[in-house]
Amino acid sequence: MPHDHPGHDHDHGLSPSGHPFRADNDAPLTYWQRMEIAARELLIEKGIVTPAEVAAQIDAMDARSPANGAAVVARAWCDPAFKARLLSNGSDACREMGFDIGALHLVVVENTEDVHNLIVCTLCSCYPRTLLGLPPDWYKTRAYRSRAVIEPRKVLREFGVDVPDSMTVRVHDSTADMRYLVLPARPAGTDGMDETALAGLVTRDSMIGMGLPKQP
């Protein structure tokens, strides 16, 4: 599809995730880009990393996406024993499904009819990146980091999620070594759906607690 991209003379289109690509190889070279090239070359020349390792690392990060988390959530919705394992040791349960999450220490918090959970990192932007991929831009903003802990309900409303006063909001600030995943509540009317179809309802934001799963 045509995509207007100021400053570029050709069409970058949209990425597979539906977002515009960021200005890249044909923009003017910056100081920090030169630093990246220089550091990478020096690390390679000194035998600390290889070009293949850099490429493999990029591929590994690109392969991580919210779809991984969605598969975990859908499994938990379908399999009570798996859900129990996920809530008691999130990392082991993800590894059991074959996901390469590295050294991630994952705590999974469950949304119920009484509780809505929300994840933030006020000190930086910690995120379960080895499961879900890189965090959304809004997660790293000053506004989100500042406000999510003091007015979570208001921030949720801005994202279209209205948590009634009868429910408890639990905010989780990722201050140290744990990373967090919200296990959203399974939507009503999904009894006949299989795991794959259910995973399609699980959005990235619902696993951060800033959204809800899609309705079937």
């Binding site: 309900r153 408890t168 905010v171 600030d173």
Partner: peptide, 19 residues
């Protein structure tokens, strides 16, 4: 406990990892 009267709902909670 954290925000006093500024809290949106007193019983809501915040969890953090503290050494």
């Amino acid at each position: 406990e954290i925000w006093g009267d500024r809290a949106e709902r007193a019983e809501d909670t915040l969890d953090a990892e503290i050494y």
